[in-house]
Design a binder for these strands. Structure first.
Lengths: 152, 152
DNA sequence: CCTTAGGTTGACGTTTACGTAAACGTAATA
DNA sequence: TATTACGTTTACGTAAACGTCAACCTAAGG
């Protein structure tokens, strides 16, 4: 045997899903195993166990991805847990479904507001950049046009 | 005199800018005075003083607005300080300007990535919502169509 | 004069999201 | 057999971003 069955176990054509070790996922998403265990402690993940060792499947991996995306968007782990749980909650009764619809609507408007924030900021970056460029070109017209880094 | 010159001092037509007390700003942006002082402590604000009392002008208010927008976008106060300082930094030399252009470009791509995250999430919300709705309608077709809240 | 409504500076407490280290088990490899 | 690489739990440490007092000053109003 070569010395590593790593990267992805049982990706074969049979019924088994691909599985991952904690450090494989950590490497893939550039976080530490500690972080992944911490997320599990907060109820965001619940991988299978082989004895004491954690084994993650494709669904676990997707959940982790969602967690990290939520973090990039500035949500707390508690909020993320709430959101993710909506993804794979069983239907339940009518009241539950209506409640969920209301919460989805809240999320939507919040995300739209955030997107608006981003677009405003991007516009301001554009302004700053053009100011920068015009200053630069006016400076270059006046003095030492050959300076700067990379010219040597 | 009525008992409050509050809301906005000297908004008149002379040279003075509008000024604000700390609690006025706190109310306007729905944060506490403590938060505003904390931001000052971190170098994000530097209002004028009348004796010991802080007095904020229009520019201070705009800075605070930018801080809060940065927070909504998930930036740390240190990052926000770095960004905001670019807004009103004096031109400086060519190297500085080029450095600033590179940082602007980094910010831009980061914000674009975040916007992409948001759009993905919004799409998923759409999917969830339509799943919800179809389940709801199929449930209503089968049983007690007159239920729910607000019907009494 | 006393209260009330605002302002100030410490200073310690709290929550979140991990980092870091100790102490241990296990399986493959030199 | 000893090392190396990976895994585990438990526990304490920490940085960020405030909250929450306490103790004080100060101008306006009844």
């Amino acid at each position: 045997m070569p010395r590593s069955a790593a990267v992805k176990n049982t990706p074969a054509g049979d019924g088994h899903q691909a599985t991952y070790s904690i450090s494989q996922l950590a490497r893939e998403f550039d976080i530490t195993p500690r972080t992944i265990r911490f997320y599990e402690d907060k109820g965001l993940l619940s991988p299978r166990r082989a004895g004491t060792t954690r084994i993650y499947n494709g669904r676990d991996r997707v959940r982790l991805k969602l967690v990290l995306r939520g973090k990039r968007l500035g949500f707390s782990l508690r909020e993320i847990a709430d959101i993710i749980d909506m993804y794979d909650s069983e239907p339940g009764e009518v009241g539950q479904l209506e409640y969920m619809l209301r919460r989805l609507e809240q999320r939507r408007s919040l995300l739209q507001a955030r997107r608006r924030d981003i677009e405003l900021t991007l516009q301001e970056l554009d302004q700053l950049e053009s100011q920068c460029r015009s200053r630069l070109s006016s400076m270059r017209r006046q003095r030492v046009p050959g300076g700067g880094a990379g010219s040597c």
